[in-house]
Nucleic acid binder design. Structure first.
Lengths: 233, 233
DNA sequence: CAATCGTCGATTGTCGACAATCTGGCACGC
DNA sequence: GCGTGCCAGATTGTCGACAATCGACGATTG
């Protein structure tokens, strides 16, 4: 009997964290908006105990910020963050590709093509929301295939923030624009044999992504949604 | 007026997390040992609420593992982990050096020399415990000087595990061995102007560190095995 | 004697109430 | 008018008690 984790063990903390994260990433709660524990506990019909633990988890994921005895807010958007996200992601994803390379796992290529096809399908269908998830799954595969657990942890630490910005971009501008070509070349490089070329492809892919997101962010009126009071960084 | 964090705001959760982390890293609680909430809450004289939140934080830091309704333990040691830690650290620290390079912050070099001197002093003095902290501070400076907050977060996610293994090594073998030379060359490369050389230096430094730690780990009788009593009374 | 099932202790999960702290506004004195 | 101190509301921090779940031990039965 091969090792399997069949049981969907359930804790309120996990459920609340999941739903709250989904709400934030979907934009139902805007970046910078306050998160009041009592209100949330009533909204989710749980006590503040599990709710607070769920908040702690989202804090560690970088989706929520808090100040002791003062308040908790959804993480605000910032132009500097975008640059940091994409630059660090370049380093991580390049490293991930190198790891995959070293393992020479062929199942990786088939699954990569599968997810890339799924991504292109959602893009062609104009389903921007789904294409965001598809793109995250496509890139996530590289980290999964690396077999590097700590690397995957680091990626998870970035993914939330990245999704936060993509979602905001989606809400502000609708479609994020045509990205078929960039992904096609990405795949070609991954399937090729030249690691140096792949490195350049990754860097170029990230550079364009960062430029696009930064441009959109700068065009936004009030970035971090600081309506009333000074910042909380 | 430069930004400063004046008030050392105190919460029980923060205190407990700090002390518990220190206890784990110092080896007062062995890797794999159980962490019972009721016992810890009595030990620290706090209720289980703040204690649980502190545990959540240590879980996110990778120092503690837990399974719902069953139990919580100090993270066990594993040979695979060492390889992952050092390989990911190579990627992160190389990236950090490149960031520092791009900023051309000269204060960095002075402080780098200062901390390197401090490290060598502790090594020469034979104070192994202090040299571990000194080495972490030396490498930590690279991340600080990068001015890259997300990179620092990623580093913090690695640092705990790394310190855990170094501390175990220290307890098992006493001195970790002479490392003056490696750090001298590290500094020389950092102060030089050839980034390519620096990259190789970083990779070499990490390779040797990983080899040393892995060797020591393999020599250990029972890696993550539970010592009979995770005694903490 | 082996396998199965129920029970029990241990541990974590959850809850509601109370205390500590911060923010903002207002009255007061200069 | 301006600064100061204080008060009230809101929000988070903390606590103790109760419920849910798990793992192991032992009784039971074939």
């Amino acid at each position: 009997m091969p090792g399997l984790d069949p049981v969907p063990k359930s804790t309120l903390r996990a459920h609340v964290a999941e739903r709250l994260r989904a709400a934030i990433l979907a934009g139902d709660i805007a970046p910078g908006a306050p998160l009041v524990e009592t209100a949330l506990s009533e909204r989710f019909d749980v006590s503040r105990g599990p709710l607070r633990e769920a908040l702690r988890q989202l804090i560690e994921e970088g989706l929520v910020v808090t100040v002791p005895y003062t308040g908790t807010h959804v993480a605000p958007l910032s132009v500097d963050d975008v640059h940091e996200i994409y630059s660090l992601r370049t380093a991580l994803e390049t490293f991930a590709f190198e790891q995959v390379w070293a393992r020479r796992d062929d199942r990786f290529r088939a699954e990569l093509n599968r997810r890339n096809a799924a991504l292109i399908a959602t893009i062609d269908a104009g389903d921007d929301r789904a294409s965001i998830l598809s793109e995250l799954e496509l890139h996530g595969l590289v980290y999964e295939a690396s077999g590097h657990r700590l690397l995957q942890r680091a990626w998870h630490g970035l993914r939330g923030r990245l999704q936060l910005y993509w979602a905001a971009h989606h809400r502000a501008h609708g479609r994020r624009g045509p990205r078929r070509d960039s992904h096609d070349s990405y795949i070609i490089a991954a399937l090729g044999n030249d690691l140096a070329v792949l490195r350049l492809e990754v860097a170029d892919h990230m550079r364009r992504g960062a430029e696009q997101t930064e441009k959109f962010l700068r065009a936004m009126p009030n970035l971090s949604g600081e309506s009333k009071r000074g910042d909380m960084t």
